[in-house]
């Protein structure tokens, strides 16, 4: 078994550690387009941190940087004191065993059933007897309310059910850090409420650290302890979600209150509308 991340405030190298993830001065560009230019974020241990921002600001890219799926051009990304951009593949895999990630679309393995999907990381990383694996899987499925669906295949699940199974799978190895990428996107109100409650319950009951990437402002405000709003490759605001609604920043207020126009323009840059219609050209 791998050693768990140090507890909240516990010293791992002799000094108190309060932040599980520390991102400092991160620059990242792809295809000549700058995504981040000097990004600084800290994720406190044991809390739910929301990463928000308009579409295309690089929220999912940030998660991929944090988990070492891509490497920054410059800067440091420390997860429990380890710089993920400098880890070897085997070190990165060791670190990832202590992380769980819920993908936007669930990303369940489509050729195996729900039970096997949840059992997948256990079978890959442990030598537990079948009876123990069975009990762990059923416990995780019970937690997300889908114990009865153990024999279904991913193609037989609704979007919300698929995401709940993916959450059960992400929790299977009892990680210390759970990362959610747009967990509420495209869900009906009932499924959304269920997932929202699960995120909160899971974090509080298991003492995890959770990072939720979302632009569902109202939903995330009810569970997050701290929020970061990204725009143009930087953090433009951070703090308690409710406090951000009263921010002085025009951009933050536009985002938090869902205003159609403001610093973030509704229209993609285009030539003059009237001229383009009359010219007959593309």
């Amino acid at each position: 078994m791998t050693a768990p991340f140090g507890g909240r405030g516990s010293p791992s190298d002799g000094t108190p550690v309060d932040n599980l993830v520390e991102i400092s001065d991160v620059h990242y560009s792809v295809g000549g387009r700058s995504i981040f230019s000097g990004l600084d974020i800290t994720i406190p241990r044991g809390r739910i941190t929301a990463i928000m921002g308009p579409s295309g600001t690089g929220k999912t890219t940030l998660l991929r940087l944090m988990t070492g799926q891509i490497r920054p051009n410059r800067g440091h990304i420390l997860v429990d004191g380890q710089d993920v951009s400098r880890l070897s593949t085997s070190e990165l895999y060791r670190l990832r065993r202590r992380m769980g990630m819920l993908f936007q679309n669930g990303a369940l393995l489509t050729d195996i059933d729900v039970f096997e999907n949840v059992a997948f990381p256990l079978r890959e990383h442990t030598r537990l007897p079948e009876s123990i694996i069975r009990n762990i899987v059923l416990t995780k499925l019970q937690a997300v309310g889908l114990r009865g669906a153990w024999s279904l295949y991913p193609s037989e699940l609704s979007g919300g059910m698929g995401r709940r199974v993916a959450l059960a799978r992400a929790m299977a190895m009892d990680p210390d850090l759970l990362i959610y990428d747009e967990p509420f996107a495209g869900l009906d109100p009932i499924s959304l409420g269920v997932i929202l409650r699960l995120v909160k319950q899971t974090n509080d009951a298991l003492g995890l650290t959770s990072i939720v990437v979302s632009h569902d402002v109202d939903e995330i405000a009810t569970i997050a302890d701290i929020s970061y709003i990204l725009s143009a490759g930087k953090v433009v605001a951070s703090g308690a979600p409710m406090a951000l609604k009263d921010s002085n920043s025009e951009l933050v207020r536009q985002f938090m209150n869902g205003l159609p126009d403001g610093p973030v323009a509704f229209h993609y840059p285009a030539p003059d509308y009237r001229e383009q219609l009359l010219s007959g050209d593309d």
Binding site: Q69, R96, F103, N105, L109, P121, R169
Partner: peptide, 15 residues
Amino acid sequence: MRATDQLSAMEMMAV
């Protein structure tokens, strides 16, 4: 599997 993030999910599960 690549297009539906199944390979990324495996990588995230350290597989």
